[in-house]
Design a protein around this nucleic acid. Sequence first.
DNA 1: AAGACGAAAGTGGTTGA
DNA 2: TCAACAACTTTCGTCTT
Length: 303
Amino acid sequence: MGNKLVCPECGSKNIVFDRARGEWVCRDCGYVFDEPAVDSGPEWRAFDSDQMEARARTGAPMKETKIGKGLTTIIDMHNRDTRGSQLAQSTKAQMFRLRKWHKRTTVSSSTERNLSVALTEIKRIGSYLNLPDGIIEEAAAMYRKAVDKGLIRGRLIEAVVAAVIYAVCRIYGIPRTLDEISEASGLSKKDIGRTYRFIVNELGIKVPLTNPVYYVPKFASALGLSGEVQEEAIRILQKAIEKGLLSGRGPTGVAAAAVYIAALLKGERRTQKEVAEVAGVTEVTIRNRYRELKKELNIPVNA
DNA sequence: AAGACGAAAGTGGTTGA
DNA sequence: TCAACAACTTTCGTCTT
């Protein structure tokens, strides 16, 4: 299930959406699409689940890869009864299944149906996040385990899918943040996180801490930095790891700071704002990590 | 004028009683 | 269950390039 957009310049199907610019961009040749320049993500931010309920008007982002672009659902997504009250969790799950039945009326047994829905969703999110096939297979396998243990009951299939993908990405060192998975799945970070912890506990899976090194190539390429800078950033991170500088710190922030410093050292300066943007953290966080790294590792920056 | 820096106050999530 | 706590964000003022 690939993206249906094809680059008119080079014919590549490797088209990604640049959220910051609001454009579709060809990964291979850099071609920028005129249309559709519509951000499929929310234009608002939700700071808690109540705000999310109040502000969300749509479900998952509209995708070319979804049958009917994901808009075939007849039952609305608001999870409220006729008086406008919230539905109970169990009823929500029931409504969810009803929606699925609308889409897939042909599948037979309940676990079959569950798996079929889940696998479709795994593939959809996987392709949305550009995950390799192996990861998708692993996610599917883990999902099956969860089904076998009866962990899905009472839970949104999509939440379990998102949680499983997040876990597999971390295990295999494919840098995907909760934010990205949240965006791809249309679920809140809170829901995914909660389900993730539950699944990991119940399945007895050990998930290593995210190594900031994994984020370096991603950030560096998003900023158009050379391989030299990447190597330097990784060297910095390794020293930081040895010094135990990372405990409790968000891996993206540390990685962003390391990339920032490495770019400075190699004379490929990027502004803190630019780095902050691709890393999904604020300038302040980069500054804090930057200060710590500079101090603890005695890095001679500008001078 | 733009970027870098840091202080202060506020947020959501985790932890331990 | 609740309060303390750490990490991070937002906002804002000042300094540097």
